[in-house]
């Protein structure tokens, strides 16, 4: 066989293997997709992008750890968590694309949007390692904050009047619950391990804590959809998330970090498409193949 890829395709098979994307774009085939009455389509599409981008971008960050985690089991764990988030992102981006109604699909939204069009919170995008931006402790700290926040959000979203959001949230809740437990147990282990491991988790928490305030800022789209019974006002999540984080910190014997929050830019942050420097690099890696070889398959 001259080409290693030839062996992957059965003789005479019409089957194409995807080089990027999924090869199938119907994550929601057969799901009730009626948009609730009186809901602005642009708002709903933007909201699905927000929640979808949070998951897509963190999935990309977690996937960067594959083969580089401190132990083999953790490679598998972080990749599994990334896969759950990617699944959540697929449903939400598919929903965003169909509600938006301009002929884009989930792959186009993931691979062909520019930085300013991404609506994720900045906590999802910051570089927490494995490169120079952080380390395993920082990644665990972010996962704890992110999954605690998203779990509280998704639990409320299960009551959404939008059939896709409520169904996707109901699935996501179970996944986010064990993501949060996994991160919390690691925080305890690192805090109670060696002096050095404790130092690392303390530093990691301090780094990611600077992006927590943004999680509770209500964007006008979120406010409008919360009023319509379709979305969740993130400001309402603070007490519950604080309670969870305090419980973990107390069990780990750690203090809540006191750090200055990273400011918004002229009042704009992730939900408005204003991102940190790390975002451009992240998208370059995420989108490179799709942009340089449009429609590629092998």
């Amino acid at each position: 066989m001259d080409n290693a890829y030839d062996g992957l395709v059965e003789d005479g098979s019409e089957e194409r293997h995807w080089a990027f994307g999924t090869g199938f774009t119907e994550a929601l085939t057969g799901v009730d997709r009626a948009v609730p009455p009186l809901v602005d389509h642009d708002d709903l599409a933007a909201y699905c992008l927000m929640l979808g981008d949070d998951a897509l971008v963190l999935a990309q960050r977690l996937a960067e750890w594959c083969s580089r985690a401190p132990e083999l089991e953790e490679d598998v764990a972080l990749a599994n968590i990334a896969l759950d988030l990617l699944g959540q992102a697929r449903m939400l981006l598919t929903r965003a694309a169909e509600v938006e109604g301009v002929g884009r699909d989930e792959d186009e939204l993931a691979y062909l949007r520019d930085e300013r069009e991404f609506r994720n919170v900045r906590l999802a995008e910051i570089d927490c390692g494995p490169g120079p931006g952080g380390d395993f402790g920082t990644t665990i700290a972010r996962l704890l904050v992110f999954s605690s926040w998203r779990l509280a959000l998704f639990q409320r979203l299960t009551g959404s009047l939008d059939p896709v959001l409520s169904a996707a949230a109901a699935k996501g809740v179970k996944e986010l619950a064990y993501h949060r437990d996994h991160a919390a147990q690691w925080v305890l282990r690192l805090a109670g391990g060696t002096e050095y491991s404790r130092e690392r988790i303390v530093a990691g928490l301090a780094l990611v804590w600077a992006y927590t305030e943004e999680l509770y800022v209500t964007h006008p789209v979120e406010a409008a959809l919360a009023d319509a019974g379709v979305g969740v006002d993130p400001a309402a999540l603070r007490a519950e998330v604080d309670d969870v984080l305090d419980t973990v910190l107390r069990a780990a014997g750690l203090d809540r970090p006191e750090v200055r929050q990273v400011a918004a830019l002229a009042g704009q942050a992730g939900r408005d498409g204003v991102h940190t420097e790390a975002m451009g690099y992240l998208l370059a890696e995420l989108q490179h193949v799709a942009r340089s070889m449009p429609g590629a398959h092998w």
Binding site: A27, L28, G30, V31, M91, V164, A167, A170, K171, K174
Partner: peptide
């Protein structure tokens, strides 16, 4: 025709 349902979650 093979359809997907999400609700109730598995």
């Amino acid at each position: 025709d093979v359809r997907t349902v999400l609700h109730p979650a598995w």
